[in-house]
Amino acid sequence: MGEKLILSVSPHLTGWRTTQNIMLDVIIALCPAAIASVIIFGLRALAVYAATILSALIFEFLFDRIMKKENTIRDFSAVITGMLLAMNLPVTIPLWQAVVGTFFAIVVVKCLFGGIGKNFANPAIAGRIVMLLAFASSMSAVPAFRGSVDAISSATPLAILGNGEGASLSLVRLLIGTHSGALGETCAAALLLGGIYLLVRGVISWHTPVVFIGVVYVGSLIVTGSPYAALQYILSGGLILGAVFMATDYVTTPTSKWGQIVFGLGCGLLTLLIRFWGSYPEGVSFSILLMNILTPYIDKWTRRKPFGGVAA
């Protein structure tokens, strides 16, 4: 006796999942696409990743230090923000611009709102959109992929499809990603592989990505009238990257399954609107950002009825 026993409220057993190992799983899932981007666009891609990831970690570390908050860089969420932002940039982006974008993503969108779990918008998407507006010319650059010689290198697939020259884009090429575009968005196969990994590991559920991509497919089919072109549309631009990795971000998307379906539906419709009738060629980022803002309402509308609960 004399030894004091721990007294605490039940449960006395918790599961193996931690915030950290979830984030680690997302990083692992992003790796195939990241590796593919280095192969497709060359070693400068590594410099872009290094700039965003390191600056994301440094900004979060400094913010926590200056604000005398508990240090949160060990949860790895800043690494994901850095990786995702880099994947949304062209390989030719000046590195200082990438760092400015990261500053906005980490400090303004995430830390100022209270850090992990408190931000209302996806930091990487908000960072990308700020860069799109601030650094319009370098962001809309159409970087050539390594060994590009043909006409396709001069435009992104969405631009090619928009010009009605879609016949020159094979699905295999879209899957492998040997075409112009942002770093991480071109290799659809690698992105899908990462998505499957996240599904198998139970990190994400299928609801948002499947509905999002499905709606874009059906919409493209209706607009173009061609199943083949619709397939090209869903494999082009940032759709797979956005649907698998950004529309499934826990913090800024609905928590319930029905909410996730509504979220995916909204994202898909907004993407279609912007792609076919907007002035930007791509609308994935904007659609996710807009739906991020609606998330608290979707959560409220789709809240499950308590089991056996009666109205007060």
């Binding site: 979830i22 779990g117 319930s256």
Partner: peptide, 18 residues
């Protein structure tokens, strides 16, 4: 650690609470 709104609790609760 801070809630990351992953929704696991929401989708697990047998009483369907939030």
């Amino acid at each position: 650690t801070p809630c990351i709104r992953c929704g696991r609790c929401v989708n697990t609760c047998p009483m369907r609470l939030n």
